[in-house]
Computed example of a mutant assay.
Amino acid sequence: MSGQERGNSPFTVRELGKHDEPRVLDLLGAALSGGPTGERTSEFFRWKHRDNPFGASPGLVAERADGRVMAVRLFLRWEFVFGGEVIRAVRAVDTATHPDVQGRGLFRRLTTDLLERIEADTSLVFNTPNGNSLPGYLKMGWQEVGKVPIALHPIRPLAFARGLKELRASGDPTGTSQSWNSDDPAARCRFPTARQFFSDPRAAVGFDELVAEADAGDAAIGHDKLRTALTGDFLRWRYGEAPGLDYRVVASYKNGELTGVVFGRPRLRGPLVEFTLSQMVVRPGDRDTARKLFSGVAMSGCDHVATHLARGSEAARAARYAGYATPPRTGMLLVARPVHPHPIDVHDLRSWQLSLGDLEVF
């Protein structure tokens, strides 16, 4: 019943419009803090919700009679492929309710109304909720898929060990719930930015061909799994155009030919500086380049690397040889809610072939 009041509700639920952006950003900032960039900016919002190559994000707001936006709900468009078929999906993101009206059912109402709106062209909803929002999703039909494991590799072992000890002692294992006196991650990282890489035609020559071959390799090992198809345009948007995220590039060349690329970003993890390795692009079978890229990542100047790489890929195999290990009971919780039936069990983590770049920052 979007677009009108429901029963005796004092709120009108309607589609999110461009004119709502300033008020929505204020509400998101108040409810969810600064997000992955530290600040809720128009540039980041538009990159994420308007410029997304999978399509603009559907969204709803709950508005009071005086025109004040009191709640917002957005779904980020995404596309997976499965056996050559495109699976249209959305990721449940950016939901906020003003403190004055929390507990009045707006989260559930906006979510269920938006689910009705996307039903005609969407097959799947997924996201990585935190502990606070998970119960609400489970009540609305989401189910746990499992924890996507995160592999770690110390670059500066002593600093890494000290930082882990501080995190455990603080009761803040993610390093995000309190202020820390930490180094500037940008100053520590020596790699060129993704924006610089894509703007230099000499550096990026052959990039689209490399991506096409890498995607063909991913398709061969993941034909029976949900995966994000790689294209040059997608990776330019995801890493080269992302405002405020400081993605960096490690590139490998042989006889002047681009043979592999890593996209990642330096970020603070409490007292530690982490290099989040989001995506590695290499040709199928080229394990030498994958190992060379991991050696390059070790020169980032950060304390450690964190990543998740598609199971069975050259990158994942090379990571094991490079000393990457997955600590027990860690990872990002993935949940899903099918909108229509699927030929595979989307609630089984083995049905997914993901990189960390599919999950982080959104």
Rank of each mutant, 00 (worst) to 15 (best):
L226H: 01
R227W: 04
R227M: 08
R227E: 10
R227Q: 07
T228A: 06
T228G: 01
A229C: 05
A229Y: 03
A229M: 12
L230A: 07
L230V: 03
L230I: 02
F234A: 07
F234I: 09
L235T: 01
R236E: 15
W237S: 10
W237I: 10
W237H: 06
Y239I: 00
G240V: 07
G240M: 06
G240F: 02
E241C: 04
E241R: 12
E241L: 12
E241Y: 10
E241V: 03
E241T: 06
A242G: 05
A242P: 00
A242T: 02
A242I: 03
P243Q: 13
G244R: 01
G244I: 05
G244Q: 02
L245Q: 05
L245D: 01
D246P: 04
D246H: 12
D246E: 10
D246K: 06
R248C: 05
R248H: 06
V249M: 05
V250W: 14
A251R: 11
A251C: 11
A251T: 08
S252A: 15
Y253R: 09
N255E: 15
N255P: 01
G256K: 11
L258M: 12
T259G: 11
T259Y: 11
T259S: 15
G260E: 06
G260W: 05
G260K: 06
F263S: 06
G264A: 14
R265E: 01
R265G: 09
P266F: 12
P266K: 04
P266W: 11
R267A: 13
L268F: 08
R269D: 02
R269G: 00
R269A: 04
G270L: 01
G270E: 00
G270F: 12
G270S: 10
P271K: 08
L272E: 05
L272W: 14
V273D: 08
V273G: 10
E274N: 13
F275W: 09
L277E: 00
L277M: 09
L277G: 01
S278T: 02
Q279T: 06
M280Q: 04
M280T: 01
M280Y: 00
M280E: 02
M280H: 01
V281H: 04
P284Y: 14
G285A: 15
G285E: 14
G285M: 12
D286W: 11
D286G: 15
R287M: 14
D288C: 09
T289A: 11
T289M: 05
T289N: 14
A290T: 09
A290M: 12
R291G: 13
K292M: 12
L293Q: 05
F294S: 05
F294T: 09
S295V: 08
S295H: 08
G296D: 11
V297K: 01
V297T: 09
A298P: 03
A298H: 02
A298T: 07
M299E: 15
S300H: 04
G301K: 02
G301D: 13
G301H: 02
C302V: 10
D303N: 15
H304I: 05
H304Y: 13
V305H: 04
A306R: 04
H308W: 00
L309I: 03
R311N: 10
G312I: 07
G312H: 07
S313L: 07
S313Q: 08
E314N: 12
A315Y: 00
A315V: 06
A316H: 14
